[in-house]
Amino acid sequence: MTRPRSDITRGWRGWRGLAPLGLVLAAAAPALASPQGLYDEGRVLERRGTACLGQADCVTVESRQARIAKGESTILQARCPAGHPYVAGWDTEQHEHLVTTALPPKPRRGADPDAPVATSGRIEVAATNNGETQGRVTLLLGCVASPPRVTAVMKQRSGVPSNHAGFSGGSR
């Protein structure tokens, strides 16, 4: 039995309404199909030398490696040695799915807010895990013997989500 043409047309028009949903699903397919999520959680962002960037007679102090569970954050600390008591900069070696952020020095109690900030030989960096698995991070602190004259300060470091960007290379 042949259906009237109008029925066929109506039927096709009915399915046509689902076309936008199909397009959305097709666009999202790579992400949905990826078992690893957004991040390549094996990729490590290597140390880049920003701890002592442009500084002469600069020594690097390395913190213990921290392990951060999924959804967790931690604060890393490092302190300059007595012979090189001033912070020049910082660097990390961290997994792609971690974000590290330098925390501002805490003001001294009762200090004049307009007075120059006293330089302390330590730094605190918060690390947050945005991925699905544990991540590891090591903080590197650059230290110099006299107050450094800098015009650039790193505040944050993170990786672009490799799986989202379609990247499949890099160190593991």
């Binding site: 650039a152 790193m154 890099g170």
Partner: peptide, 22 residues
């Protein structure tokens, strides 16, 4: 114009920086 020192970045990496005029 005040040119700043070169800053190294790895593959597919994001960094936040504060730069200062001086």
């Amino acid at each position: 114009p005040q040119q700043q020192a070169p800053v190294p970045y790895g593959i597919l990496e994001t960094q936040g920086w504060a730069y200062y005029c001086t």
